[in-house]
Amino acid sequence: MSEEIQKFKVTIDGKTIEVEPGTTILNAARQIGGDIVPPAMCYYSSLKGSGGKCRTCLVEVSKGSEKDPRPMPKLMASCSTTVMDGMEIKNKSSERVVKARGGVVEFLLMNHPLDCPICDQAGECHLQDLAYEHGHSKTRYEFNRREFDKIDIGEYIKLHMTRCILCYRCVYTANQLTEKREHGVLKRGDAAEIGTFIENSLDNEFIGNVIDVCPVGALTDKTFRFKSRVWYTKPMDASCNCDKCSGKAVVWMIGDEIARVTARKDEYGEVKEFICNDCRFNKKDTNQWNIEGPRKIKRHSVISANHYEKETPKHTTLLNKA
């Protein structure tokens, strides 16, 4: 008995690939890889329900499918639109997409404090990358920006809501990874904020992962805050014996000391194996880790631009532009 699944043929910016039915446009693009992958600020493949909110991954569907070749009238969120056989998609080759994405980036940056010089996320920030690529050099927003007080949520995590872009990733992480979610989105519209409503600390074994999933610097690691710029630290693959998680992590070292520990992220900044709080916050001694070797960071960002083992010269495009 042959169980051959009928694969769907998709063309994105002129590159064709065959994917399984049910794949989203974004994941099809990621299978092709390279320049044609739309940016995604809120989608996170391991979190159910994520995606569709930031609207940075909008693409133009210029041909619906082989059966129904009509183009879709609206731009579609590629993270939540599944592919059809024979679908043709325009990402960067579409003027509409480029314009809409510029607009979305403008909206995202409108109330963002742009405090990158003092932000711990700088260098590995997805919003920073997005702004480099699609943002304007000058803002047209002339009003007061939204501001919030910084909140301590728990022993290890600082919430700086002013920087938040409301991607909801941390809410989904807490919902799906931990036993009890104690924070969520309060209020609505541009007054919406992440919070615990009643001052509450987030303390459970896996809550530290909200720091890793945050695309901006809204949730930061208090054991690492203001210690160092990330590009001065050396990422090393490391593992340890942990009975709560896989123990596979990345340690970021300054000299011989471990400055911080994060989970291992792929080139789209997504964690595949979440790590526990113990590994993340408490194991800051090299004796506790089995260091495997330098970590190759594949992301197109400052963090990989200044590093000693560059994957390809393509990563230096930001510097070349300057």
Partner: peptide
Amino acid sequence: YHHESCGQCSPCREGTGWMEK
């Protein structure tokens, strides 16, 4: 519309407030 936007997706959350201002 600024008051009633749910704040889930960015164009509406930020854009409605901007237009009002």
